[in-house]
């Protein structure tokens, strides 16, 4: 009986464990995003504070596992979705997101904004971007390869850890990068690289964790990763290898939903993302490059020589149509 009473006590205490769902008097704007955006180290809390100061609204972030989870949640919910804005898709996923027919044009004149990248899409607003790159440990690897070509074909080159394109965004990024550089010879390139791939992980965290444990001198990450180590850890040990062919670019975007009951507020939020306020928050919280050139410029930890001179990128519709085929080519090449 004591047990039952304890159970009842537990059940009664449950609602406390759950977020309050009280109705707000002001309009609410629901933004679906990926989890690290809203974590206490991410830009989410700062953006929420800044936006709510002026919008007379309640901004509510819903954090999902990653960009892939974001898109599948949208497809799962369809027209029932509670989201007004979806934030955090990247250019490898926008083609598929467009196909859902759930998105509405942003109607923002991007021409008047000093964008750091050429952009004219009518649905998606680019809030930041980055380049995939191989981060290396300068203590164990004094001279990294200078190009993707060298990484792939130098038999005595460094061993690397990469992510799986079937389960992770950077993994897919490398697949596209290789395709861009080697074209239809991509399979031969993968086969040549295979002996030096220590392992292929499910996601970025596993790969980077193994790299920090010293399991390989190089890991697939972002060109902005060293900036984190410099800024937060005052550590200059981890560097990024700049490749002469250029680096594959990932643009992170946001869009509003046609089912939203707050289209104006959603548009205001999208415009706010491109404001100097948000753009100055993003570099040191999301560790990506701001898509707008702000008066303040980049923080010191970010270095010009770590911004690739050449940008590589496929059209998002091409990625949508070819992704499955390219992944099976990758599977065949690495399974030999």
């Amino acid at each position: 009986m004591i047990f039952l009473r304890k159970l009842a006590g537990l059940a009664a205490s449950l609602p406390i464990l759950v977020l309050p769902t009280a109705q707000a008097a002001v309009p609410q704007l629901t933004v679906y995003t990926y989890a690290s955006f809203v974590s206490e180290w991410g830009p989410g809390p700062l953006i929420e504070q800044a936006f709510e100061k002026h919008c007379n609204c309640d901004l509510k972030f819903v954090g999902l596992e990653d960009g892939g989870a974001l898109l599948s949640r949208l497809k799962l919910e369809g027209k029932r979705t509670a989201a007004d804005v979806i934030l955090g898709l990247d250019t490898a996923l926008t083609g598929e997101a467009e196909q859902t027919g759930l998105l509405q044009e942003h109607n923002i004149t991007l021409g008047s904004i000093n964008l750091a990248l050429p952009w004219s899409d009518l649905l998606f607003v680019p809030y930041d971007f980055g380049y995939f790159g191989f981060v290396y440990d300068s203590e164990t690897l004094p001279t990294p390869p200078g190009s993707l070509e060298e990484l792939v074909h130098d038999r005595d080159g460094p061993r690397i850890i990469i992510q799986d394109p079937r389960t992770s965004t950077p993994g897919l990024g490398l697949l596209l990068w290789m395709r861009k550089v080697f074209g239809t010879d991509d399979q031969a390139a993968w086969t040549a690289l295979a002996p030096r791939i220590v392992t292929v992980t499910k996601g970025w965290s596993e790969a980077y964790g193994l790299f920090l444990k010293g399991e390989a001198p190089m890991v697939l990450s972002y060109t902005t990763s060293p900036a984190y180590h410099r800024q937060v850890e005052q550590n200059n040990r981890y560097q990024v290898a700049m490749f002469s062919e250029g680096h594959y670019r990932q643009v992170e975007v946001a869009a509003r939903l046609s089912t939203s009951s707050e289209p104006q507020l959603a548009q205001n939020f999208l415009r706010f993302l491109l404001s100097d306020t948000v753009q100055n928050i993003l570099p040191t919280t999301n560790w990506m490059l701001p898509s707008v050139r702000t008066g303040q410029g980049l923080p010191d930890a970010f270095r010009d020589e770590e911004v690739p001179e050449r940008m590589l990128q496929f059209d998002s519709l091409e990625v949508r149509d070819q992704r499955k085929q390219w992944i099976s080519r990758w599977l065949i090449a690495l399974s030999r």
Binding site: D164, A194, I197, T199, K202, L334, S335
Partner: peptide, 9 residues
């Protein structure tokens, strides 16, 4: 399996 398996095999 993915992390320690070494590759898509």
């Amino acid at each position: 399996v993915l992390t320690l398996g070494g590759g898509p095999n």
